[in-house]
């Protein structure tokens, strides 16, 4: 039986509630300090299986800009971040790009897609490298 109590700062929204949470056998038994329900969910996740949304960029061919911003559609396990970043560093996609277009499906085996954070038009004359 594992019981763990920790002081956390909730990062779900910019309010940044300071939480005191106790987890036992993968169940949240107590949470204090959160001002909404999402805080309790965050506390459980953070203690049992911490997750983060990854935001980065991917190289673009023929785009208005040389990079397009991307993000994971949902938060991914924290320990997969490095692999996700490395995987998307190798990708090159072609413009035009639609917002929320899938850039990498099931990235790093997380079951979660990486999607484009913006639309980007194609330019007739690609930027000189």
């Amino acid at each position: 039986m594992s019981r763990e109590t920790a002081e956390l700062t909730c990062i779900v929204c910019p309010v940044g509630c300071r939480l005191r949470a106790t987890v036992e056998d993968g169940q949240l038994v107590e949470a204090q300090g959160n001002s909404c329900k999402r805080g309790a969910v965050y506390a459980l996740d953070e203690l049992c299986a911490p997750k983060r949304t990854v935001t980065s960029t991917v190289r673009v061919e023929g785009g208005f800009l040389p990079l397009v911003p991307v993000r994971t559609r949902e938060p991914i396990p924290k320990d997969k971040i490095a692999q996700v970043l490395l995987d998307i560093a190798k990708i090159r996609i072609d413009a035009p790009i639609r917002i929320h277009q899938i850039v990498a499906a099931d990235v790093a085996g997380t079951g979660i897609d990486v999607i484009a954070s913006r639309s980007m038009s194609r330019v007739s004359a690609p930027r000189a490298e």
Binding site: T57, R59, L67, L85, L86, A89, K90
Partner: peptide
């Protein structure tokens, strides 16, 4: 160039 640094390090 960005990305190179990350790939290089890895």
């Amino acid at each position: 160039p960005s990305k190179d640094s990350l790939l290089e390090q890895t």
